[in-house]
Simulated assay, not measured.
Amino acid sequence: MENLLAIFFTVLITDFVAEFGDKTQLLLIGMTSKYKMRDIFLGTLFANVVLNAIAVFIGGALNEILNSFLWAVKFVAAAAFIYFAVTTLKNDDDDEEEGTDSRIKFAPLAVFCTFFVAELGDKTQLTAVTFGANYGMSMIFVVFLACSIGLFAADIIGMLIGCFLKAKAPDGILKVLSFALFAGFGLFTVYQALGLLQARLSEKGSQAVVPVWPVMAAVAVLFAGLCLLQLWLNKKADKSSRA
């Protein structure tokens, strides 16, 4: 019993520390500017359970898949971050016009998908893979439970920080912070994806060189254009509402 508890708390604390200050925890702070706490809680909870189940129960297969396609996962995550950065610039009135019913219905799913692709292959999930392999099948449910609780505990702190900023910070501060977080992680994740793609090509013996900085420049220009387009749409909507 003592050995079981020791393993449980070792895994829990390790996963908690690994997640603390990680990009997914910071992104949850940003999500509080877009979604209700309930939606973020549900989306994150289910994403944590699924991610840790994948990591602990099929860790070996996960490693093989990620080794081949992690660069593609990173591109998907980058697209999600950039999308959230751009939509953070939308006027609050525009969000209300979209209808609360559709937002309530799809918000947990949006959080789930974004958190899932952001965390897939991240250090906290690789930690879960390692613990699952080290302790074996006899402790697999203990490792799964400890990883899930440790990861979710750190994420709850991110949610609470976001809610505090939303309630206490001056108007617009959380939006600016959210935009900066989503934009920064979006562009950085593109950079990671390009590096992983280059490494994958090298492993296969290809002499092709991924043009990292030209692609980064193109993505930055596209991102800036999308932001300007969203600001123009905001201005157009403001004029329409005053007419």
Rank of each mutant, 00 (worst) to 15 (best):
residue 222 L to D: 02
residue 186 G to H: 06
residue 180 A to D: 05
residue 207 Q to D: 12
residue 210 V to E: 03
residue 188 F to W: 13
residue 208 A to Q: 04
residue 214 P to D: 04
residue 199 A to H: 01
residue 217 A to F: 15
residue 212 V to F: 04
residue 222 L to K: 02
residue 204 K to G: 07
residue 218 A to L: 11
residue 208 A to Y: 09
residue 194 L to F: 01
residue 199 A to S: 12
residue 179 F to L: 13
residue 209 V to G: 04
residue 180 A to K: 07
residue 191 Y to Q: 11
residue 184 G to H: 05
residue 216 M to Q: 12
residue 178 S to M: 00
residue 188 F to P: 05
residue 220 A to M: 14
residue 218 A to P: 04
residue 192 Q to P: 07
residue 198 Q to H: 03
residue 178 S to G: 02
residue 183 A to W: 06
residue 207 Q to P: 01
residue 219 V to I: 14
residue 218 A to R: 10
residue 189 T to G: 00
residue 208 A to I: 12
residue 176 V to I: 15
residue 212 V to S: 05
residue 195 G to M: 07
residue 206 S to Q: 08
residue 203 E to C: 07
residue 180 A to F: 11
residue 210 V to S: 06
residue 194 L to M: 07
residue 207 Q to T: 15
residue 216 M to L: 14
residue 190 V to Y: 00
residue 204 K to D: 14
residue 186 G to E: 06
residue 212 V to T: 12
residue 176 V to G: 11
residue 184 G to L: 04
residue 218 A to G: 11
residue 223 F to A: 08
residue 200 R to M: 06
residue 198 Q to I: 09
residue 181 L to A: 01
residue 213 W to T: 08
residue 185 F to P: 01
residue 218 A to D: 03
residue 223 F to Y: 10
residue 188 F to R: 04
residue 196 L to G: 08
residue 193 A to R: 04
residue 214 P to T: 10
residue 221 V to I: 15
residue 190 V to Q: 00
residue 223 F to Q: 00
residue 202 S to K: 06
residue 202 S to F: 06
residue 207 Q to A: 13
residue 193 A to P: 00
residue 182 F to R: 04
residue 205 G to V: 02
residue 206 S to G: 09
residue 207 Q to S: 12
residue 190 V to W: 09
residue 219 V to S: 08
residue 199 A to L: 10
residue 211 P to R: 03
residue 194 L to P: 03
residue 185 F to R: 10
residue 200 R to K: 15
residue 206 S to C: 07
residue 188 F to E: 13
residue 208 A to C: 01
residue 189 T to M: 06
residue 177 L to E: 09
residue 219 V to D: 01
residue 211 P to K: 08
residue 220 A to T: 15
residue 221 V to D: 08
residue 223 F to E: 10
residue 196 L to D: 14
residue 204 K to I: 09
residue 209 V to T: 02
residue 177 L to Q: 05
residue 208 A to D: 00
residue 220 A to K: 06
residue 197 L to N: 11
residue 195 G to D: 10
residue 205 G to E: 07
residue 195 G to L: 13
residue 184 G to K: 09
residue 180 A to G: 02
residue 179 F to Q: 08
residue 196 L to K: 12
residue 198 Q to C: 10
residue 192 Q to M: 07
residue 221 V to Q: 09
residue 210 V to F: 13
residue 213 W to C: 01
residue 196 L to A: 13
residue 186 G to N: 11
residue 178 S to W: 06
residue 186 G to T: 03
residue 192 Q to Y: 03
residue 220 A to G: 01
residue 210 V to H: 08
residue 204 K to E: 15
residue 179 F to H: 15
residue 198 Q to E: 01
residue 185 F to K: 05
residue 202 S to Q: 14
residue 215 V to K: 01
residue 203 E to W: 03
residue 218 A to N: 06
residue 179 F to G: 09
residue 217 A to C: 08
residue 212 V to N: 02
residue 214 P to I: 08
residue 208 A to G: 06
residue 201 L to R: 03
residue 188 F to L: 15
residue 216 M to Y: 10
residue 209 V to Q: 02
residue 220 A to Q: 02
residue 204 K to T: 12
residue 214 P to F: 08
residue 178 S to C: 13
residue 189 T to H: 04
residue 206 S to A: 15
residue 217 A to N: 00
residue 200 R to S: 14
residue 197 L to C: 12
residue 195 G to F: 07
residue 222 L to S: 12
residue 187 L to A: 03
residue 202 S to N: 14
residue 206 S to P: 04
residue 204 K to S: 13
residue 189 T to R: 07
residue 223 F to N: 03
residue 217 A to Q: 00
